[in-house]
Amino acid sequence: MGIWRDIKGTLLPFWITLGYLFTKPATIQYPEEKRTPPPRYRARIVLTRDPDGNERCVACHLCSAACPVDCISMQAAETEDGRRYAAWFRINFARCIFCGLCAEACPTLAIQMTPDYEICNRDPLSLVQEKEDLLIDGCGKDEEYNFYRHSGIGVVNPRGGNEDENAPVNPKALVP
C-alpha cells in the first residue's frame, strides 16, 4: 500500500528525532571535559634522551629535510670524542602541521610526537621553541634504544665493538 508507506515514511523520522532529543549529546565540551588522546596521537614534538641520559639527537638534519613546512632548524656541532649534537635546535610550532614525518625520518628516535595537544597561544613568537624547551628527561616511546650502542662512530664502544655490529671493513685491502 503506497499511502501507508508514505505515512510511515513521514511519521517515523519524527519518532527517531524525538528519540535523539532524549539521547545524551555526543559533544565533548572541551575546556571542562578533555578526552584522552591515544598514545600514538601526533601533537607536541619532543627531543628525547637515551637510557644513559645523553641527548639522542645527532643533528643529522633528516627531520628538517623531511619537514614539509620547514619548521625545524638546527645547528650541528661535535664534541671532542666525535659525537655529534645540535648546538641549537628550533621548532616553530606556529608552522608545524603535526604530520609526523620528522619522527619517521629520525634515525636515532630522538624526535618524537606526544599526545599533548594544548599548545595554542595568542603570541605566535612564544610558539617558537628552542632545544631547552623541547628536551625531555625520559626516553619517550622506546626506552631501551641507544643509537651509539648499535652503530656509529666509537663514542660508547670502539668502532665495530657493538654486539650486533661487524668490524669495520678495510677498503684498501684486496682480500675479501
Binding site: 528525532t17 532529543l21 539521547t23 549529546p25
Partner: peptide
C-alpha cells in the same frame, strides 16, 4: 537548543 539535541549536540550553553 532543541535542534542541537536532535543532532546530538548541546546547542548554545
Amino acid at each position: 537548543k532543541i535542534l542541537g539535541r536532535m543532532q546530538l549536540r548541546h546547542g548554545p550553553n
